[in-house]
Nucleic acid binder design. Sequence first.
RNA 1: GCCGGCGUAGCUCAGCCUGGUUAGAGCAGCGGUCUUUUAAACCGAGGGUCCGGAGUUCGAAUCUCCGCGCCGGCACCA
Length: 460
Amino acid sequence: MTEDFLHDRLAKVERLRASGVDPYSRGFKPTHSSVAAKELIGDAERTPPVSVAGRLMVKRQQGGLVFADLQDGQGRIQLMASRNILGEEEFGRFADLDLGDIVGVTGPIFRTKRGEITAEVQSFQLLTKSLRPMPEKWHGLKDVEIRYRQRYVDLIANPEVREVFRARTRIITAMRGLFDERGFIDVDTPVLQEIPGGGHARPFMTHHNSLDRDLFLRIALELHLKRLLVGGFERVYEIGRVFRNEGLSPRHNPEFTLLECYQAYADYEDVMQLVEDLVVCAAMGAGRPLQGSYQGESVDLTPPFRRERMADLVLEHTGRHAAGEELNDLFEEHVEPRLRQPTFVLDYPVEISPLARPRDDDPRFVERFELIILGREYANAFTELTDPVDQRARFEAQAALRAAGNVEAHPMDEDFLRAVEYGLPPCGGLGVGIDRLVMLLTDQPSIRDVILFPVMKAET
RNA sequence: GCCGGCGUAGCUCAGCCUGGUUAGAGCAGCGGUCUUUUAAACCGAGGGUCCGGAGUUCGAAUCUCCGCGCCGGCACCA
């Protein structure tokens, strides 16, 4: 069937060529987008001719008239081609266009009897012949497997999907704007690393042929950004792809976009303020009101966010006094799922935070917080550990865990230690999973809905 | 990795539980009619390895098993 379709369309392409029409032509310059063209008419009856270009999505023929919807990057505009205006031959060519073809059209804008703002086709040019059938015009494309594997079809057929990805870039642009305003510089650090540090995760491994050396794809940005603070950049951020060799889920894609930033002379209190500002800024970028909802559950993003110590929350929810990894385990099992509205959870156990500064009043805990919304983590931040001797001891403790078989324990990084030995200024750092934030702000249920080309198994 | 659900025409879906003539519908495509339509309508003729394989049976889209893919949950994690 598919091959029949291709066969018919390819035959059509040859017929077009034989009649002197280039089915993959060029040179047509639209003067207006569909939306701009429609705005032109105002109260007028008719406008001077304009040129629009896009993909033919719907065709309705009625004798000597063809109505069609042209879809471009902005939206849609109806076209009307008339036998009387175009003449028999050109009209026939227009009527012979297929849904999915990309065409350029020139003509005045007018209103039909039913009031639809329409471009009257005075001339047109086939720009790109489509060989494949478009998804169903009324129900659209629903099959999620096709939507994710063939995102291009999804984007054609489901305009609201385009809007999600537009919102995604607006969110990122807005956040960058905030950083730029505050004097942060954006930097690029290595994706290919010898030692994949800065987080707890299994890395992807690869191999450099001419160096004959195994390398890892980064799992976090932290250690290189902190090296830059050692170098004298006082405010840096990076929004970059990181890779974690772990399972897939509606909240996990093996490659995802992480924001990290580091600010000299700040501590985690300052970073909490920054996170609140970033969330507001991102919500504005997305066009989402602060009092909104996610998948039917209301979520109020209005700062200030609630602040609670992890140990207090665990005591409140379980009645237990705990410390170390046990505290964190109890928190994740009993408390985290119940934190629905934005909550800063403070003061994590030192054992699970090898890069964070201990609290002055109780070195069993570090100055670290995570922002939890709807039971999910949206930000992770701490006052950074700047003492190189303590940092080495932390790495050694991790190395012991690693030797005991914990593959996600933090690896020793001698070069990072060397940098810290030169002197890392006191600073606060932050990491935010951008994809999850975009999910929240665009009300999308799966991370695959905010990543253009999510990881899939091999197509069969 | 484990558990559950799903997989029928290009697309959206019926049919499956309770096995039985050539597997259906709408849209799209093809051939017609129709000059202001809005999911256009009407007429006509097409289009399927019913995810793949094996089994049970006189007979399998339908029941069983194995495999693949997708979705969800758990595990891991952000």
